[in-house]
Simulated assay, not measured.
Amino acid sequence: MQNDFNFNNELSGRIALVTGGTKGAGAAIAERLEKAGATVIVTARNPPDKPNEKMYFIPADLSKPEGTQKVLDEVLSKFNRLDILINSLGGSETPGGGFAVLTDQDWEQTIQTNLLAPVRLDRGFLPQMIDRKEGVIIHIASIQARLPLYDSTLPYAAAKAGLLNYSKSLSNEVSPKGVRVLTVSPGWIKTTAAARMMERISESSNITIEQAIQSVMDALGGIPMGRPANPEEVAELVGFLVSPRAGYLSGTEFVIDGGTIPTI
Rank of each mutant, 00 (worst) to 15 (best):
M1V: 08
N3M: 04
A16F: 03
T19E: 04
T19N: 02
G24K: 02
I29T: 07
L33Y: 08
L33G: 07
A38F: 08
T39M: 10
A44R: 01
P47F: 08
K50G: 00
N52L: 09
Y56A: 12
T68I: 10
L72I: 15
D73A: 13
D73K: 14
V75C: 07
L76D: 03
F79C: 05
F79E: 06
N80A: 05
N80S: 08
N80T: 04
R81I: 01
L82M: 08
L82I: 13
I84K: 04
L85C: 12
G90A: 03
S92L: 04
G96C: 06
F99Y: 13
Q105C: 01
L115A: 04
V119T: 11
L121N: 03
G124M: 05
I130E: 05
G135N: 10
V136T: 13
H139V: 00
I143A: 05
I143M: 02
L149Y: 13
L154T: 04
P155S: 01
L170S: 01
S175D: 00
K177S: 07
G178F: 04
V184A: 00
P186G: 00
I189R: 03
A194H: 09
A195V: 13
N206Q: 15
Q214K: 15
M225G: 06
G226L: 15
R227T: 12
A229G: 13
V238F: 07
L241I: 05
V242T: 05
S243K: 07
R245E: 12
R245P: 00
G247Y: 01
G247T: 11
Y248Q: 06
L249H: 11
S250R: 00
T252E: 09
T260E: 07
